[in-house]
Design a protein around this nucleic acid. Structure first.
Lengths: 147, 147
DNA sequence: CTTTCTAGTTAAGTATGCTTAACTATATAA
DNA sequence: TTATATAGTTAAGCATACTTAACTAGAAAG
């Protein structure tokens, strides 16, 4: 079986190790800011992909449009996102991060990934170069995988 | 600021990409099996760390002992974990995966990481070697970071 | 032996994220 | 123009993960 090849093993081991750490930080940050995990996820998606329609939120998170509407409502109330009318279709709404939402998410990401700094500090310049190269390859392969 | 160095950027980009994909698969698998995300997380922890006491669950997930008890109860009912008396302290319970639980989690991990296969198939042998080497360095650094 | 502390359970109540159903408003098709 | 489909909202109800409080049982300390 291919799944037990050396590189697959390494990738899995790395992901196991980082996922735990990252998830914990993520959940903590969301909670400490008074947001639920789904709410925070919506903000992350918005940051990642720019603006979104309501129905795309519903689809992405596999919930009903009603739930999506309620979910985003709270984020609007909190001032993290703006819900504007789509000029090309007046039924539709476009959701996007507000200035405050942008700031909030960036801070969250910063906090979640602070440990990466501690990690890379322990590496020599040559090691860093090797890893950068490897990750660049991986990211490129990942992108082509999605398409 | 150090956080904008090349390697940190690569690591973040890679983690952003993989986290999204992995999380989605994780949530899907948990849901499709009728487990909540916290319940599935407990199973993952048990697999990762062997057996656990109830209070450790509570601590790990930052919930009350009462909640931990209720959480695990469902997993016992479902036959995924065994709750046995700690021989060294008869108040305490040791939680561990049952045979069925073990099988279930392994299948879940398999499903979650299937895409890694698709990814590595796209890489040349040299690329794979480079990445394996890089990841090995990372994993080692990660381990020393935890200590 | 008695007191106090610790591990876990149970029950009742709360919070909330989700669903369905009914609705408004706009777009599209006949 | 009328009919149908689509985007989103609102309200009511449900499921459930969580809390607190009261409890049992065993360990540790006096």
């Amino acid at each position: 079986m291919n799944s037990s090849s050396r590189i697959d093993q390494s990738l899995r081991a790395w992901m196991e190790a980082t996922m735990h750490r990252s998830m914990r930080g993520w959940i903590r940050f969301a909670r400490s800011s008074g947001l639920s995990l789904p709410q925070f996820s919506v903000l992350m998606q918005l940051r990642h992909r720019g603006s979104f329609g309501m129905s795309e939120i519903a689809e992405k998170f596999e919930i009903t449009p009603a739930a999506a509407s309620q979910l985003t409502e709270k984020l609007v109330q909190a001032g993290y996102i703006e819900r504007i009318e789509d000029p090309s279709d007046r039924r539709a709404k476009l959701l996007r991060l507000s200035k405050a939402g942008e700031k909030f998410v960036v801070e969250g990401v910063e906090e979640r990934y602070r440990w990466i700094n501690d990690l890379t500090k322990r590496l020599s310049v040559e090691e860093q170069a090797k890893i950068s190269e490897a990750l660049t390859i991986l990211i490129k392969a990942m992108e082509s995988l999605i398409l």
